[in-house]
């Protein structure tokens, strides 16, 4: 039995990320120009409580996918630690192997994440076999999981990825993530590319599997509705930083970080009588190469003040389970609207 799950009842978070940072170097654009730095992820920390779903939202360039890959060890971080049940996970080959038995990931592109030359069954048993499980046992487990995700193993185990629809492939990816018996699954835009009706089916499946297998989820998505539906807590990222975190209810209530408010207001209104009249924020999400000074959002913020370009805001408590990285949340910041947020 998975010892990590046994300890689910204690207070230690099943996953903790502390100070993760990653910079990428972009080669110089021409002779005489300096190579540039992409600040993909800057000092990201959060906790995942056992048995819960943490949603991560943000737009292009916010670093949510890079964060997922840092947690999985697919990219080596410049700084920061990943802790599973309080234990720091090592970066050695052995440490990574141990980490990957605990944390698994489902990617966005359902067809690209399956080897086109392998049958569904072969794709799923690859992981366990690599970890030493016998082929026959791995195959039995694969068939059982295929059944659980709604694909009849007799019909699908011997097929190839191109013969399945997008939704079916994603179910295969979920089965593959489960076959190693992890405690945590990261979904990186896993349902974004699916038809709406299929997306709904897959979400129902994810919820069933979570309780069946006692899992904790990290759910990365740009779809705010889906995140609100499935998450217990939400992390909002912007330009590589966490700018707000809290319980889903509080975050979606509003009065949070200006960017979060803009994001929430950007959701198309499903009521044709009450259409959106003004865009909440103008311009495109910037890329994390030329970072603004001070608060990274200040160039686009309607409530910008002098202090915003000077000083980076700290993560401030703004409610029982909510923190906001904004000068307006910090009563002592000196911002004209200090203390206005999180009410």
């Amino acid at each position: 039995m998975n010892p990590v799950k046994e300890a689910n009842r204690s207070n230690t978070p099943v996953l903790e990320v502390a100070g993760l940072s990653k910079k990428f170097r972009v080669p110089a654009a021409g002779i005489g120009q300096k190579p540039r730095v992409v600040h993909a992820v800057s000092d990201v920390s959060f906790r995942l409580a056992a048995g819960t779903t943490l949603g991560i939202v943000g737009e292009s360039g916010c670093g949510k996918s890079t964060t997922a890959r840092l947690i999985m060890g697919l990219i080596a971080p410049d700084a920061g630690d990943v802790l599973i049940r309080g234990d720091v996970m090592g970066r050695s080959a052995k440490g990574l192997k141990r980490l990957r038995r605990q944390v698994q990931m489902v990617f966005q592109d359902s067809s690209a994440s399956l080897n086109p030359r392998l049958t569904i069954e072969s794709s799923i048993i690859f992981g366990p076999v690599v970890h030493g499980v016998k082929q026959s046992e791995a195959r039995a487990r694969a068939h059982h999981l295929l059944d659980l995700v709604g694909l009849d193993p007799n019909l699908y185990a011997g097929r190839y990825p191109h013969e399945l629809s997008g939704g079916q492939r994603q179910r295969v990816n979920i089965a593959r993530a489960l076959v190693l018996d992890p405690s945590i699954i990261i979904f990186d835009e896993a349902v974004s590319a699916l038809d709406k009706s299929i997306e709904a089916q897959v979400l129902n499946l994810l919820i069933d599997l979570k309780s069946e297998f006692d899992l904790s989820y990290i759910f990365i998505s740009h779809d705010l509705n889906v995140v609100q539906y499935i998450s217990d807590d939400v992390l909002v990222m912007y330009l590589g930083e966490v700018i707000e975190r809290g319980s889903t209810d509080l975050i979606y209530q509003g009065a949070g970080h200006p960017y979060t408010s803009a994001l929430l207001a950007s959701m198309p209104s499903p009521d044709p009588e009450r259409r959106t009249l003004v865009a909440p924020v103008s311009g495109d999400p910037p890329n994390p190469i030329d970072l603004p000074t001070g608060c990274r959002f200040h160039p686009r913020c309607a409530d910008v003040s002098e202090i915003c370009s000077r000083l980076q805001p700290r993560m401030t408590q703004a409610g029982v389970s909510r923190s906001i990285a904004c000068h307006m949340a910090d009563r002592k910041s000196g911002h004209p609207k200090a203390g206005a947020l999180g009410k």
Binding site: E59, H222, L263, M267, P268, T276, L277, A279, P280, D284
Partner: peptide, 11 residues
Amino acid sequence: LDATVQIQIIL
């Protein structure tokens, strides 16, 4: 498109 850009384009 990203959410904040999508609403701008729709408008």
